[in-house]
């Protein structure tokens, strides 16, 4: 299993408290959090320019979806996971790794390790 310690992880989440929670869960296991980004525009900026090892993307960002951010990450070869409240009905790429809200620290860590492996 890949250790998350020292990994640079982008967090994209439009809900402040949920983003705060994700950031603290990741910081607790030694990861460096990039962001969090609360809106599509800054998220896209991070995705294009930051040095990143992986990303956690909320699918529905209120003012848009994270689809273009996912595409940008994909073109850079940066792995990512989706976090969603839509359950099994998310309607994303069936190969994508999706964690269901509310998620535990164990779940987000395991999902990130899986895509980083």
């Amino acid at each position: 299993m890949t250790d998350l310690s020292g990994k640079r992880i982008l967090v994209v989440e439009d809900e402040f408290l949920v983003a705060l929670e994700a950031a603290s869960m990741l910081a607790e296991v030694g990861a460096t959090v990039v962001g969090p980004a609360y809106h599509p525009a800054p998220a896209l900026q991070f995705a294009k320019t930051e040095a990143l090892d992986a990303a956690v993307l909320d699918i529905n960002l209120g003012t848009g979806t994270s689809e273009s951010i996912a595409d940008t990450l994909k073109s850079r070869g940066i792995p990512f996971i989706f976090a969603t409240g839509y359950g099994q009905l998310a309607g994303v790429d069936p190969d994508a790794v999706v964690i269901d809200k509310p998620y535990s620290q164990a779940q987000i860590v395991a999902a990130l390790r899986h895509v980083l492996a």
Partner: peptide, 20 residues
């Protein structure tokens, strides 16, 4: 689906508040 999404987001917020 939209309702479910909002309920789950709210639960995630509650979880965050509790943990913090």
């Amino acid at each position: 689906n939209e309702l479910n999404h909002r309920v789950k987001n709210t639960l995630a917020v509650v979880q965050s508040v509790a943990r913090q």
